[in-house]
Design a protein around this nucleic acid. Structure first.
Length: 471
RNA sequence: GCUCCCAUCGUCUAGCGGUCUAGGACGUGGCCCUCUCAAGGCCAAGACACGGGUUCGAGUCCCGUUGGGAGCGCCA
């Protein structure tokens, strides 16, 4: 059997679409799982939208997700002569003909047909007219057989097909000489030796036309697999207005590529009860047989859980670089990794949903003492006058500590609590607010150990000053 | 409007005629743990859209209804 060759063919819209990302993932998993190759092809025949920057964004999204391709990116804009040649071949063999019907004429006839309650297909007016190359402005239409079943066995949907007569003679070349998307795609898939076309189910209905194109071009069609569309939380088509549709969006929100990849691969595909899939497992276990036929909603709930899972389990060397941009943004400057910061990240990975949240929880370590932003509700709740004495005592005891360690800190807290008959929480919370500005952080001993003696004392002193001023 | 496709807990899904009083995961609620927040542990609520068939037997097969999706461009 020939080597499996799949392709992912995005149009350069300036971002990688969620649905596209999953299609790419499926293509890669299928190809690599079968010892084949993935070809990347950029469908940039729409000159308006297609800029180098827009293309770069799509490729960046793919790389970030860990989807690697083996050939390309090939660009349709650089292959226009191939499409032109294909149309000429169609014309020469009589498989296609020139059509001089104008848009207006077409529209008029279409309206009439629809008004009569019938389905519109091209009525074949120019079919036998035999227009030559100099017939003026014209399109080129594929001549479809009157009665012929255009059928295929879809790898996801099973036996599918349509009668050629229901399709009508479709345009393959515009009057400006440009190829239609369908023609370009089929020509590319033929010339690139694509064996398996794995694409969104929105193309299921277009496939009979594509089959006719393969036939007219005397080419063997590939196997087709249509994967169900991802729909929005409201069950409707993913909309750029309502739903976060780009991979970049999730990346910027602090989701790890591992999490997004795992989330996407499980939408419309499953492997028993397994939820967690590594990159290698996706390639090894992915199977078109197990792909669903029903559209699925993109609910981010499980993505959050997956992200937490990967934040907790990822190798630290992988986590830190991923976190870096979020730390820099939080601090407003490039942040240097220190042993204290690394220790804090270890503590924070157990309690963060996203990298963004993690950076936000690390803020207290990144900023100067006077740049702490206090949660005033927490301040009001925990900085009570009664706390002045124990807090002052804690401050002085901490200043005297022989070594600044979690164990020593714990002992000191216990001693102060015992002397003032306080539960640990009564002392820990006010100190936490003093040290971090808010009521949420890792354990108080760990937090202070990371903060260091100087800054801890300075921040407790600041809290004391405020308590005294209020009294 | 026409053509095609789809239908299990709120969501993602397991199920490929009997092992289903329908399993898992996320989410939700409760309890435990606890210096906060998490994490972790335990428990709970929660679905075969509806109606007809076929069959000894249907979540699983067939038909219809309803609901949803896609396609029907000189867009990609």
């Amino acid at each position: 059997m020939a080597t499996v060759r799949t392709r992912f063919a995005p149009s350069p819209t300036g971002f990688l679409h969620l649905g596209g990302a999953r299609t790419a993932l499926f293509n890669q998993a299928f190809a690599h799982g079968h010892g084949g190759v993935l070809v990347l092809r950029v469908e940039d025949t729409d000159r308006e939208r297609s800029t180098p920057a827009a293309e770069r964004a799509v490729l960046e999204g793919l790389r970030w997700l860990g989807i690697d391709w083996d050939e390309g990116p090939l660009r349709q804009s650089e292959r226009m002569e191939r499409y032109a040649a294909a149309v000429e071949r169609l014309l020469a063999s009589g498989r296609a003909y020139r059509c001089t019907c104008t848009r207006e004429e077409l529209e008029e006839r279409r309206q009439k047909t629809i008004a009569a309650g019938r389905k519109w297909t091209y009525d074949g007016r120019c079919r036998e007219a035999d227009h030559g190359p100099d017939c003026g402005a014209h399109t080129v239409r594929l001549r479809l057989p009157e009665h012929e079943r255009l059928a295929w066995d879809d790898l996801v949907f099973g036996p599918s097909g349509q009668d050629a007569g229901e399709i009508g003679d479709m345009i393959v070349r515009r009057s400006d000489g440009g190829p239609l998307y369908h023609l370009a795609g089929v020509v590319d898939d033929i010339e690139m030796g694509i064996t398996h076309v794995i694409r969104g189910a929105d193309h299921h209905s277009n496939t009979p036309f594509h089959l006719a194109l393969y036939r007219a071009l005397d080419a063997e069609p590939p196997r087709f697999a249509h994967v169900p569309l991802i729909v929005g939380s409201d069950g409707k088509k993913l909309s750029k207005r309502r739903d976060p549709v780009s991979v970049q969006h999730y990346r910027d929100q602090g989701y790890l590529p591992e999490a997004l990849r795992n989330w996407l691969v499980r939408i419309g595909w499953s492997h028993g009860d397994q939820e967690i899939f590594s990159r290698e497992e996706i390639v090894r276990l992915f199977d078109l047989d197990a792909v669903h036929r029903a559209p699925a909603r993109a609910e981010p709930g499980k993505l959050v859980w997956l992200n937490q899972h990967y934040l907790k389990t990822l190798p630290f060397e992988r986590l830190l670089p991923a976190l870096q941009p979020f730390l820099d943004a939080e601090a407003g400057r490039p942040v240097q990794a220190t042993p204290e910061l690394e220790r804090l990240v270890h503590l924070l990975r157990e309690r963060s949903k996203t990298l963004m949240e993690m950076a936000s929880l690390a803020r207290f370590l990144l900023v100067e003492d006077d740049a702490l932003v206090f949660d005033e509700k927490a301040v009001a709740k925990h900085w009570k006058p009664a706390l002045e004495a124990p807090l002052a005592e804690l401050h002085d005891a901490l200043a005297e500590l022989p070594t600044w360690s979690e164990a020593e800190l714990e002992k000191t807290f216990e001693a102060v609590c015992a002397r003032h008959q306080l539960k640990l929480g009564k002392l820990a919370q006010p100190v936490r607010v003093a040290a971090t500005g808010g009521p949420v952080s890792p354990g108080i001993h760990e937090t202070l150990a990371v903060l260091g003696r100087e800054r801890t004392l300075a921040r407790i002193a600041l809290a004391l000053a405020r308590i005294r001023a209020a009294a």
